[in-house]
Design a protein around this nucleic acid. Structure first.
Length: 598
RNA sequence: GGGGGCGUAGCUCAGUUGGUUAGAGCGCUGCCCUGUCACGGCAGAGGCCGCGGGUUCGAGUCCCGUCGCUCCCGCCA
């Protein structure tokens, strides 16, 4: 007989009745009836009920067991007495009558029970992650993650991609997020950086002629956390392709993403063909470049209904060129209680308030102070434009669109949530395309890259090279071959057709006000590589953690990461980051200059 | 760096207008219980009410500060 087990805890059926078996696992739940004692023995594979009574030589030992002790039990499989079968368990037709128990690992009193579905504070869950991971919910999430990654690998390889590894210790990159730095012992005063993404490596793999690259790539960024953004490290399905247009990248990636969502989406409807939504359209309709398309609300410009109207606040705002008034239609929100609630919410968001009109029986022409200010004609104009009627409401935001979208987008989401308009049973995916190449940097009063300086401008190279840097209007209107995949309001990935031409890259940096020496200093290696025959190439990098988060139905990345850090980028279980010895620092030629407390 | 929420038993939470000895469930300890699967019953232990200061005859409760956790903004090519 095997030292620890003949079967797993999820294995035994009626076929094994009468066999002498050996199981090892955790005491999930113990029910001691005095005369008869049940233990639900749990392992990775499932749960089996084991039972002892005073006739069993193991009874005395069984009475000593406590939750989460790891034990080995020997015994005989027998059919459960009629009427005591448990249909919830695959092993529920049988039980094991214990003849011997060996304690393999006793457990101290638990800071957090494994049994049950109750919520526990993050701090405890993270400190005792190994206990949390025993719980069915997290355990399943992590297994799902592994299956999703397996599926992605298979799909990528089937599509002709090859998997590469790129360095973890590399050079600090000047753009983007803050780097994690690793001091060099051999080169005092110099540092490696952990890659924020293998961006330059994957481009170099294309320059090296490998044609189709992918990697489940760890990425490191020293930025503050969010619910959907892990501090420190996360994983991307990083991929890159040579001799491709933007459409080729879409055609390669879309089936992989859609396939994974269909495979693991538990029957939720997945977008059959991802719509391509230009950045400008996404901002205008949804107030964000990562719209939740499950929310049917589409905003519209209603500036004309307010221009020169009796509602002086908006009329005055509209006197400034470039300003506008947008409407957020709220089907089914046509009552004062709801409108007031939205107004309070807006104030909680730091807004002065949220103007609204609503339509109800007896006031078919529109109710609320705003309707009275602008009069019935303009109110009707709004109702007609947005196809609103009795029982509906409409909210308004006014000012400079670039500024108020930060509020309008969340307001659209809030209305959708409050009125239950969001279809929960779908994964609505889309491409966001036509991002601007450059944008006006208000603080520095200059034109700068709006995304990745490596993206190719969506304009003929010759025309781009001929651009007059003073022609700001044309430059700010330029689009880039830059694209995102968005699912249910979550940005899944960002990608681009890369700028593989040194001349175009130099021009792009010149337009953004960087001297060629800056380009050389920052991206000399990359630029150099491009001068020796670089293929046109492009790629994208979907976030693995976010995909799994959506598939698992979680709101927080920590629910799909094995050993996550907390919001302050601390590993409470391992105690990272930690102090190091003076000897270690000395070897690295590092002296600490810590900030003074208080 | 800034804003919101939370902080009471090992854990999840309740705690009234500021008023006697701060409660419940789970867990823990002991006893009882031969068919449970969230087993049940009886008894018990367990509290710097995050910390510091203030107001008050009296503070878990009100005020100020601080710390911790969390969510968001900034940040995230």
């Amino acid at each position: 007989m095997h030292r620890y087990r003949t079967h797993t805890c999820g294995e035994l059926r009626e076929a094994e009745i009468g066999e002498r078996v050996r199981l090892s696992g955790w005491c999930h739940r113990i029910r001691d009836h005095g005369g008869v004692l049940f233990i639900d023995l749990r392992d990775h594979y499932g749960m089996t009920q084991v039972v002892a009574d005073p006739d069993s030589p193991a009874f005395k030992m069984a009475e000593k067991l406590r939750a989460e002790w790891v034990v080995r039990i020997d015994g005989k499989v027998r059919k459960r007495p009629a009427g005591t079968e448990n249909a919830e368990l695959p092993t529920g037709q049988v039980e094991i009558y214990i003849s011997e128990i060996e304690v393999l690992g006793a457990a101290a009193e638990l800071p957090m029970p494994v049994f049950g579905e109750q919520d526990y504070p993050e701090e405890i869950r993270l400190k005792y992650r190994f206990l949390d991971l025993r719980r069915e919910h997290l355990h399943n999430n992590i297994m799902l993650r592994g299956q999703v990654i397996d599926s992605i690998r298979r799909r990528m390889k089937d599509a002709g991609f090859f998997e590469f590894q790129t360095p973890i210790l590399t050079a600090s990159s000047p753009e983007g997020a803050r780097d994690y730095l690793v001091p060099s012992r051999l080169h005092p005063g110099k540092f490696y950086a952990l890659p924020q993404a293998p961006q330059q490596f994957k481009q170099l793999i294309m320059v090296a002629g490998f044609d189709r690259y992918f990697q489940i790539a760890p990425c490191f960024r020293d930025e503050d956390a969010r619910a959907d953004r892990s501090p420190g490290e996360f994983y991307q399905l990083d991929l890159e392709m040579s001799f491709v247009t933007q459409q080729d990248v879409f055609d390669a990636v879309e089936p992989v993403i859609r396939g994974v969502f269909e495979e693991f989406g538990k029957g939720k409807k997945v977008t059959a063909k991802f719509p391509m939504i230009p950045f400008a359209e996404a901002m205008a309709k949804y107030g964000t470049d990562k719209p939740d398309l499950r929310n049917p609300i589409v905003m519209e410009d209603v500036s004309e209904a307010f221009r020169g109207s009796g509602f002086k606040i908006f009329a005055n705002i509209l006197n400034t060129p470039g300003n506008a008034v947008w409407a957020i239609p709220a089907k089914g929100g046509g009552n004062r209680a709801f409108c007031d609630r939205m107004n309070s919410w807006a104030q909680g968001e730091g807004q002065p308030g949220l103007g609204y009109i609503f339509w109800r029986e007896g006031e078919e022409g529109g109710a609320g102070p705003l309707a009275k200010n602008i009069g019935p004609e303009r109110t009707k104009q709004i109702a007609d434009q947005l196809k609103l009627g009795v029982g509906d409401a409409c909210f308004f935001v006014a000012g400079k669109p670039k500024d108020f979208v930060k509020f309008a987008g969340p307001a659209r989401t809030k209305v959708g949530e409050e009125l239950n308009l969001i279809a929960k049973d779908r994964f609505d995916l889309c491409w966001i395309v036509d991002f601007p190449m450059f944008e006006w940097h208000e603080e520095d009063k200059k034109i700068d890259f709006s995304h990745n300086p490596f993206s190719m401008p969506a304009i003929a190279a010759e025309e781009f090279l001929a651009l007059d840097p003073k022609d700001e209007e044309k430059i700010l209107g330029l689009k880039a071959y830059q694209y995102d995949i968005v699912c249910n309001g979550v940005e899944l990935s960002s990608g681009a057709i890369r700028n593989h031409r040194p001349d175009v890259m130099k021009k792009a940096f010149a337009i953004a006000g960087y001297d060629e020496s800056v380009l050389q200093a920052k991206f000399g290696g990359m630029l150099n590589a491009l001068t020796y025959g670089a293929p046109p190439h492009g790629g994208i990098a979907p976030g693995i953690d976010r995909i799994v988060m959506l598939l698992a139905g979680e709101e927080n990345l920590r629910e799909v990461v094995l050993f996550p850090m907390n919001q302050k980028a601390e590993d409470l279980m391992m105690g990272a980051p930690s102090e190091v010895t003076p000897k270690q620092l000395k070897e690295l030629s590092i002296r600490l200059d810590l900030p003074k407390k208080n």
